[in-house]
Design a protein around this nucleic acid. Structure first.
Length: 429
RNA sequence: GGAGAAUUGUCCGAGUGGCUGAAGGAGCACGAUUGGAAAUCGUGUAAACGGUCAAAGCCGUUUCGAGGGUUCAAAUCCCUCAUUCUCCGCCA
């Protein structure tokens, strides 16, 4: 949710910022207009209510003195009717402002490159020898490697559930578990995050606060007749942890991490990444969430992005960092870094983590606030989220980057202890 | 899933139609007292929205689990829902 005051007081600036994100100026103008109408109605209604309260006191006074108050009561009946009428109009205006304002994306940070698509994203840095393909000239894609080794089973996933679901088997299941245990260990022991196990189903209020609702309902799995949704990311339950709460300034910053399954309907992505582990309806992710003071949130974003990158460096997987353009950023984000891991078989980098500062956008929606020590005033906190990392995509990257000429997979050194000393995954007999 | 009880401010807790944003207590903050502390005394101690304002502040409206209703007027009466507790059923 945007700060309505900025739209009111500096319309041109607000409109310009939102234009970078593809929002029509007309729409902001309409919002401003309805908001003005809304506030006029509030004033009108409150004036009458103030009168009603005053006269109510008079009536009470008279009743206590056993005097008749019939005439006053009668006039108040009229006033009450009028209040009801105005409140009805007000409700309508409120719904209209709500409909527009809840659909507006966050203002982009000034450092974000302006653009319309992912083509306009800017590479920030690279790490590792991406272009040295390891086994030979023809690296195999991870889905072939996984099926040949008998550690991934897409066919049975589709049979038992649907396409874009799968089974991990034997050393594959073990590797998945090794990966997220490793990631959680690094984030908790080296980067100071508190490990959390969250609900995997959340209510509509939570989905609203983090920005998925009302605009992106088609991307998630909702339970029928329940007001409940399977989480599309642990960002939702983690960020909502402090919804409707006021924290102490001394409590900030706060770091949480959680491994969870994530459920996405992937509506509208038919035909894209249909093979392999890149785009699934259900996948594991180690999520990072921070609550920070406004003046520190961009430093925290840099640190969080490094926290994600560290995982890839320890796994010795080549990657690059890009900063998303205004056109490619998620709805709630003010600035986002994507970390893309090298996928040799596809000869390209693929997103494996996305780290965003939403500033106070989610905090406004979820009323996540803190009290300043110096003046006791209440402010919105800034919330950040990032993947640290997407486990399935890391799995895919390991298969492709660590494949050997004989089709086996070398286990990255840091994972060997998590695999009971196993150093290679070879075909199951 | 069935039956019953409950839900008031940071916490405990009073309050069945009007003078209750809400008694009383605890906690917390500040001040007095003290060599310092404890005890004691005094003062203060919610949030959202709207208006005004450079700001501090001030004014108004709303909020007693949530939403709706009755009424001139609702913490208080009615309806729906949620949550918690107890008992029964089921169950990892």
């Amino acid at each position: 949710m945007l700060d309505m005051k900025l739209i009111r007081n500096d319309f041109e600036k607000a409109a310009e910022l939102l234009k970078k994100r593809g929002v029509d100026k007309e729409e902001i103008a309409r919002l401003k207009e309805i908001d003005e109408r809304r506030r006029k109605l509030i004033q009108k209604s409150e004036k009458l209510k103030s009168k009603r309260n005053e006269v109510s006191k008079e009536i009470a006074e008279k009743k206590r003195n056993n005097e008749s108050a019939d005439d006053v009561i009668q006039s108040m009946q009229e006033v009450s009717k009028e209040i009801k009428q105005i409140d009805k109009e007000l409700e309508k205006a409120e719904k209209e402002t709500w409909d527009i304002s809840t659909g507006l994306p966050n203002f982009p940070h000034e450092s974000v490159p302006v653009g319309e698509t992912e083509e306009d994203n800017e590479e920030v840095s690279r790490w590792g020898d991406a272009l040295i393909s390891r086994p030979g000239d023809e690296p195999k894609p991870h889905w072939d490697l996984g099926e040949d080794l008998g550690i991934l089973d897409f066919a049975r996933g589709a049979k038992v559930a649907q396409s874009r679901f799968l089974y991990y088997l034997g050393a594959g299941a073990r590797l998945e578990r090794a990966l997220y245990n490793f990631m959680l260990d690094v984030q908790t022991k080296e980067h100071g995050y508190t490990e959390v196990i969250t609900p995997y189903i959340v209510n509509d209020e939570s989905m609203f606060a983090t920005g998925q609702f009302p605009k992106f309902k088609e991307d998630v799995y909702e339970l029928e007749n329940e007001n409940l949704t399977l989480i599309p990311t642990a960002e939702v339950p983690l960020t909502n942890f402090y919804r409707d709460e006021i924290l102490n300034e001394a409590d900030l910053p706060k770091y949480f991490t959680a491994m969870s399954p994530s459920f996405r309907s992937e509506a509208g992505s038919a035909g894209r990444d249909t093979r392999g582990l890149i785009r699934l309806h259900q996948f594991h992710k180690v999520e990072l969430v921070k609550f920070a003071k406004p003046e520190e949130s961009y430093d925290e974003l840099e640190k969080m992005t490094r926290d994600a990158e560290t995982i890839l460096e320890k796994l010795e997987l080549p990657y690059r960092r890009v900063v998303l353009s205004t056109g490619d950023m998620g709805f709630a984000a003010a600035k986002t870094y994507d970390i893309e891991v090298w996928m040799p078989a596809q000869n390209t980098y693929r997103e494996i983590s996305s780290c965003s500062n939403t500033e106070d956008f989610q905090a406004r929606r979820g009323m996540i606030r803190f009290r300043r020590e110096e003046n006791n005033r209440i402010e919105y906190a800034h919330t950040l989220n990032g993947s640290g990392l997407a486990v399935g995509r890391a799995f895919a990257a390991i298969l492709e980057n660590y494949q050997q000429a004989d089709g086996s997979i070398k286990i990255p050194d840091v994972l060997v202890p998590y695999m009971d000393g196993m150093e290679y995954i070879t075909a199951e007999k």
